[in-house]
Design a protein around this nucleic acid. Structure first.
Lengths: 223, 223, 223, 223
DNA sequence: TATGAATGAGAGTTCATTCAT
DNA sequence: TATGAATGAACTCTCATTCAT
């Protein structure tokens, strides 16, 4: 009965790898099984570590999900930034939405995690953690806001963040609708319920399109 | 151990009242403490009943929340319908939004419950329950969709439901943002985080306004 | 919401009918679903009475099963007596077993209930109930014992009761083996487990046959 | 609230010991109080562990009892085998029964547990568990069957298993009779009920004796 | 650092029994 | 007599977290 012990992480790199393994395990399990079926035992097992070891890297279960959501969101923003820069300034709404579509496509995990955040932040989170999280979010968003404002010239100063929060809102709302649990998936197969089968990307882009058209229209004083 | 016995509900009316008491207890607890701190023991205590008694009225905890959400949503639709009828056909977007504002104001509980639904429907719900819920939702929505289409003449046939689902989406998305847990509330008091303090009504109405402007603009072929 | 109230049992006959209805419901449910799935609610429902009403006829759940087992056992003994009298004295072992087979066939419910008795008598039974039950059993068995002794001339005085208790033992033991739960039934369908598929009547009669042969042999001093 | 922490079982041997402690606790409680008063809380308490800890060793309550019964039965068979081998082939019935008596005496717990099996297998047992149990039982019985056939030369090929199942049947049947609950024990102290005070060993051996005499007699064509 | 055995509060649910109606 | 709403202790089982090894 030899004790299987994972090799110790002695340097920073190894430790970072462990950390990522835990986050990856949490993400995969969440995507596979939904929020309720993810627990510390399964995260540990999936990441190839012992339960106690997980606690060396994250103090609570909530910290894992908070970190995960943050990282996914930041990665998503990074990619968005990158694509916006590539696309250049003063875009047509259509071109802007093409950028968005590309980014949504490559980071679809984020849309599922993002609506979890609200829940995670309800429980077992200290003031300090929540504060750090929100401040970081705020700072990270500012750059993207500015890029959005540059991309869409009809936006006033400060409206970039408004577009971003609306985008966030649509992700959460349509994300929930488009991502039913297994039981609900079965239910929605019924032909009469076709109207409830939402394609996230399509609806999100379409809604944001109208929202931006409205903004532009209003800024031009036409409506 | 004195046995406190609640007066018995002997007729349909009294039973309905007890049922409502349970739902009210669940709703209040949810509003006060958030989803995770609502359990059958607290619901029973708050409604002044024994735990076992609650199970005479609802078969599972999920059934309570599903019923609650459904009732709140239907009441909300009822009120919306009523106000739409009162307001008459062919409204300006502004008038339509005034109606919406009035209704949102009177039914603010719903906006918090609605984003819970996704979670509730993930766990311990049978196919039959979920199916009945969705079908009922669909049927109930049709009437309101038609009224919306009458109120906003620029909408095509079938776009009423699209407006409704977008409204639903905005409720969920902005509902989450505007309804922070106690800890998060404290966090958001910080001046730097003002941008994250979302006023649900304002943002929801504003976003929908732009969405509708966009729709109208598009229908008129102007944009 | 008219209250469905069963007509009151005002005379002895009606009360007896109610009593029998309860016992019949308990027996049927036990045969259908096994011991663990029989509860007071289902007994009440099946017998068309309210839960409280059942308690007017039997003080506890255990009293129901004790009464049921007693009645089934007594009916069985009655039938056995009758057939033994019909068959006359001084039977061959084979003829005696033919009588037994006939009776077993007509009263197969008893064999399933009898092995429940031990369990019922473990829980929630007062000394008085248990005493009354056993004394009654004893007295009721004496007559049959005598008939058995008359039927099998090689039995000594007092060996009739020994044959009866052995019979009881075989009923319980082979009864358990021959009456598997639904899951176990499935398991025993496997060809390798054929030896565990016991036919109660066959094994019981066969074993008792050998037992009696042994008794006879011994009484004749041959073995 | 001082937290009493049990010394941890770190190696296989210690874990096996803990497992045995749980089984021993379950067995003792069952012998003392009967099936209905054994629950997970009492098993945990008796074995000096927390409730949750018990579930580290056994997945369900039923698994505990199934394991317990299996182990007791196998131990019993082991001992029986051993004694049969010691006694040699071609025994007189009397010598065979002497072996049986010795074994029964040393393993009297088994006779009480064995009649519980039927009940345990009715509830909360998966097909897989039940199948594994029965197959194991079958395989384990084959060896003993062969030894029984060697010991009793008048048995035909295949009759060993028949003798074993009859023995099992007698254990269950007479086991129930000889093992009354506390209340029933008191009842049976009454002089008129002497006939119901069954001595398991005596009755079992006596009945099997006659059964074997019958078998021998029949095989010799004398009866 | 890493382990995983141990914890124990707490979850949802059941059900025999009581008793106001 | 008959009802069935109400009870609440008891049940099995889960799981985030701790800490001796």
């Amino acid at each position: 009965m030899s004790k299987m012990t994972v090799k110790r992480a002695t340097n920073h790199q190894q430790k970072e790898a462990r950390r990522e393994a835990i986050l990856a395990a949490a993400r995969d399990l969440f995507l596979e099984a939904g929020f309720f079926d993810v627990n510390m035992a399964s995260i540990a097992k999936r990441s190839g570590l012992a339960k106690g070891t997980v606690y060396l890297y994250f103090q609570t279960k909530e910290e894992i999900f908070l970190t995960l959501s943050t990282e996914e969101f930041e990665n998503w923003l990074d990619m968005f930034d990158e694509e916006l820069v590539k696309a250049g300034d003063n875009l047509e709404i259509k071109s802007f939405l093409d950028v968005l579509k590309r980014v949504l496509h490559q980071r679809d995990v984020m849309t599922r995690l993002i609506s979890l955040l609200h829940l995670v932040l309800e429980k077992n989170i200290s003031f300090e953690e929540a504060f750090a999280f929100k401040m970081n979010l705020k700072e990270r968003s500012e750059k993207t806001s500015e890029l959005v404002e540059k991309a869409l010239p009809f936006l006033d100063k400060g409206q970039g963040i408004e577009v971003l929060t609306t985008l966030h809102c649509l992700m959460v709302g349509f994300g929930q609708m488009s991502d039913p649990s297994p039981v609900l998936s079965k239910v929605l197969e019924h032909p009469d319920l076709a109207a409830f089968r939402v394609d996230l990307e399509e609806r999100l882009v379409d809604s944001l399109s109208l929202f931006l058209i409205g903004l532009k229209c209003r800024s031009e004083g036409k409506c």
